[in-house]
Design a protein around this nucleic acid. Structure first.
Lengths: 156, 156
DNA sequence: CCTCAAAGCAAAAAAGCTTTCCTCCAACCC
DNA sequence: GGGTTGGAGGAAAGCTTTTTTGCTTTGAGG
């Protein structure tokens, strides 16, 4: 139920590297394999660890370009929202989709090979759903990108 | 060196779930464990798989709020850029940092517990480095967020 | 039809995970 | 104080999975 300093160390280690053996993980946090295993087990069961995944190399897979797409719309019905969610979430090039407060209604993060492919993506998008205003911001450089969340705010 | 349809299936499976045993992974892609293992080995060696990590539950860890921070600056020297990169990348609440083209110079994705904590983060940021213009967009809803990249553009 | 290389398979060895059973320590009750 | 209970850690054994090794199959080129 609650998270102590050792649990935090385990979570920090696992979100940095999920390939660690229980023996090594235990060494890092000052436990032997068994109690370490029990804690990991509990952290997974209680949902602190949601999943373990492989992170792939975008450049090698030819999706090296990131574009942020800011969407504004005049449609605000629940039906339109559901339709929009369904359509956009189903596009594999869209890796993130947020509903925002303020000027921009939705922000998409899209990964594609190049600008030409972005144009194809863009056409596909506006053909599938009506949007009032779409503006694209191309990333020149990915200066930081991590799946590791800060653990300093965890309630013990 | 090159990626065939089976490799693609393996990558797709691993970026969805890295806990699969080689036997199960092999079953999914139509191989027995050994050739499957060899392919995974190769994919890791050649860098297609960069790392395996655990994805944690943000809500449970009290960092459920996402804020996008758009930064504009008048400083454009290489020194300032390096300083900015260093300062911002070192802040654990900043999970993504992109340099963009266009109006906005930099876009940060920041995860924190609540608006109060965001204010603390914001003060810390502007105290550490000089920025011309900072505007914050709060995420009302995370409609999609995945680490899985599309594999349809892979060069075979 | 033979040869060679690439890829697959099966079985054995190694490594790591999971279980079981103990011990230790601290809190609590009498 | 002395005994009891519960929670946490640890060692060893059993079991599963990964990794290695050596052999077989398949298919292309001569």
């Amino acid at each position: 139920m609650t998270i102590d300093a050792t649990d935090r160390k385990i979570l920090a280690a696992l979100q940095a590297d999920a390939t660690l053996s229980l023996a090594d993980l235990g060494k890092q946090v000052g436990l032997s394999a068994t109690p370490c295993w029990r804690r990991v087990q509990r952290l997974e069961q209680e949902g602190y660890v949601r999943r373990r995944v492989a992170l792939l190399d975008r450049a090698k897979l030819n999706v090296d370009v990131t574009v942020f797409v800011a969407v504004r719309t005049s449609k605000h019905s629940a039906e339109w929202l559901e339709e929009f969610r369904r359509v956009v979430a189903d596009i594999p090039e869209v890796v993130d989709l947020y509903r925002l407060s303020g000027e921009i209604d939705y922000l998409l993060r899209v990964v594609i090979p190049d600008i030409k492919a972005y144009d194809a993506f863009y056409r596909k998008l506006i053909e599938r759903i009506e949007l009032q205003d779409v503006s694209s911001m191309f990333a020149m450089e990915e200066m930081k990108s991590t799946t590791e969340v800060p653990l300093s705010y965890v309630k013990t």
